[in-house]
Design a protein around this nucleic acid. Structure first.
Lengths: 107, 107
DNA sequence: TACGAATATAACTATATGGTTATATCCTAG
DNA sequence: CTAGGATATAACCATATAGTTATATTCGTA
């Protein structure tokens, strides 16, 4: 975080964290782990409705978390870059640490 | 992100991203960059109301993003660990990259 | 051209949550 | 033990948004 966090920059950062702050969107990103998928494949993989899936994907795309490629009548989505998973991994690491800390307190 | 993202784990991750998905809380974390601060100092630094500040700090504390220490009638808050800023830096890095990409497209 | 599959969007509702005001709690001084 | 400062909590309202249903769009094909 740069020292000079203007209110505008703070809003941008907050918006991006907000995009990751939803279980449905995290499921979608996780489903893209192994490569690109069509919307229908993502619907299948995540158990979300088609409309809901499209809406979430649109948001993730706007913020660059996923990229897309049209081919015939399908849209293939893929992770935007490696940062996405790195962010999630960092968060998971925190949770693991927390769980361990709690386990140790119960010993 | 581990391969097996159970719904419960997804909720935990989402909750943590949600904590960072608010400009007011980001301001508080940023204000803690250089070390611990009392609540009143944070109120002063962020222009939030006292009640609002306390509420946000309570949430950040629950999730381990800040730690606190009571001394006399003051509560000193500090960053929970280095991950917090690392997460924000990653996000800022994404934004910078995005801005640059856009600038290049206008050339 | 008309149809159907794949995807996107619009309108709506219900819920979650950020900010405020008011009050409670905790601590120290006198 | 009372007063006052520092912090936390409660109750409330207004807004934002996730999910749904319905419809629009886009594209290949009969």
């Amino acid at each position: 975080m740069p020292r000079t966090m203007t209110p505008a920059l703070l809003d941008l950062v907050a918006d991006r964290f907000k995009a990751l702050a939803d279980p449905a969107r995290l499921r979608l990103l996780n489903a893209l782990r192994d490569g690109e998928r069509t919307v229908s494949e993502l619907v299948e993989a995540t158990d979300l409705t088609q409309a809901n899936t499209s809406k979430h994907l649109a948001l993730l795309h706007t913020l660059g978390f996923v990229k897309r490629r049209r081919e015939a009548s399908w849209t293939y989505y893929a992770l935007g870059d490696r940062d996405v998973l790195r962010l999630c991994d960092l968060m998971c690491g925190r949770i693991e640490a927390e769980v361990e800390r709690r386990a140790r307190m119960l010993e």
